[in-house]
């Protein structure tokens, strides 16, 4: 990388300015910002619908698609997109119960990874393509890649805005939503298709193996911290953005892979929130589960 000689100044403004002088860093930040927004919002629905394993599996399906694309000298993003949306459509058509069936998903997931490995063994070139699909390589993103990311991300965001309330209703209370006349199957299908597109662009940063960190962890924290869907999505996006920006920044100056920092920051926030909440709970027991202690009994026993 060209940033080998860039010294870190301990001055955020100068450091950011230095970093953004490099076009590849600007590309990475533009794409990364869109990806974090999309992942944060769609991740909220992934957590509500308890389909995080399905999201993980779609990433793996994307890997075999990308590997096949590499083999035929096609841009791997198209292979990814085809396999994630194809897999998403299949899962959507099988219904929500299928999306939470982990044994079946796990079986297909392993097969898809194996298929991807086979495609790569046919490919005689350097394996860096595979490496970047598995773990992400955002600094290598081209201008056309940025444009694709922003366009695909915008499609996902607009579509989510249009189906927002019915999707939320179907995710929270499916039977009532069905009785209200909402098309549950179609909503599930739309959601899985959008998830496939979101995963395709997110793979560029964190890769298929670490997709959880952007797609699930920020939303899992947000669901625990907020009571309103809107604020939940905002918090989820904020965490995903923070992790992505810091990850890119650190990669530029410290030369460690951004994926590692993104995953670590998301993980640290998750652990802090879970830990903080159980600590709070141990100090303030729930009013309806434990009867209030009798103060007179306590003083008498002393």
């Amino acid at each position: 990388m060209t940033s080998d000689q860039i010294p870190f100044q301990w001055n955020l403004v100068t450091d950011l300015r230095t970093m953004w002088e490099f076009p590849f860093m600007r590309n990475a930040f533009e794409a990364g910002t869109m990806i974090a927004i999309v992942a944060g919002i769609i991740g909220y629905f992934v957590v509500l619908r308890r389909s995080s394993f399905a999201a993980h599996a779609l990433g793996h399906a994307g890997f075999s698609g990308a590997a096949a694309a590499v083999l035929y000298a096609v841009n791997p993003v198209y292979g990814l997109l085809l396999f994630t949306t194809g897999g998403g459509a299949l899962m959507g058509l099988l219904g929500r119960r299928a999306a939470t069936r982990d044994v079946e998903i796990g079986t297909v997931l392993a097969f898809m990874l194996g298929l991807g490995l086979l495609f790569l063994s046919f490919y005689n070139g350097y394996a860096s393509e595979a490496y970047s699909i598995l773990f992400g390589e955002i600094l290598g993103i081209s201008v056309s890649g940025v444009v694709f990311t922003i366009e695909a991300g915008a499609v996902v965001l607009v579509a989510l805005a249009l189906v927002y309330r019915p999707l939320l209703f179907a995710s929270l209370d499916e039977d009532v939503a069905e009785a209200k006349g909402l098309p549950i199957l179609a909503l599930g299908l739309i959601f899985m298709l959008l998830l496939g597109v979101a995963i395709t662009i997110a793979v560029q940063i964190v890769g298929v193996l670490l997709i959880f960190a952007l797609m699930v962890t920020p939303a899992a924290v947000a669901v625990r911290l907020t009571r309103r869907p809107w604020t939940g999505m905002l918090v989820s996006v904020a965490i995903a953005l923070f992790a992505t920006w810091v990850g890119l920044f650190v990669q530029f100056y410290a030369q460690y892979p951004a994926s590692f920092f993104i995953v670590s920051i998301a993980f640290a926030i998750y652990v802090a929130v879970r830990g903080g909440q159980s600590l709070l709970r141990s100090f303030a027991p729930r009013a309806n589960s434990t009867p209030p202690a009798d103060p007179s009994a306590a003083t008498n026993s002393g």
Partner: peptide, 10 residues
């Protein structure tokens, strides 16, 4: 109800 037992939605 499909609602998650530890859903913090108000």
């Amino acid at each position: 109800h499909t609602i998650d037992a530890d859903s913090h939605v108000a």
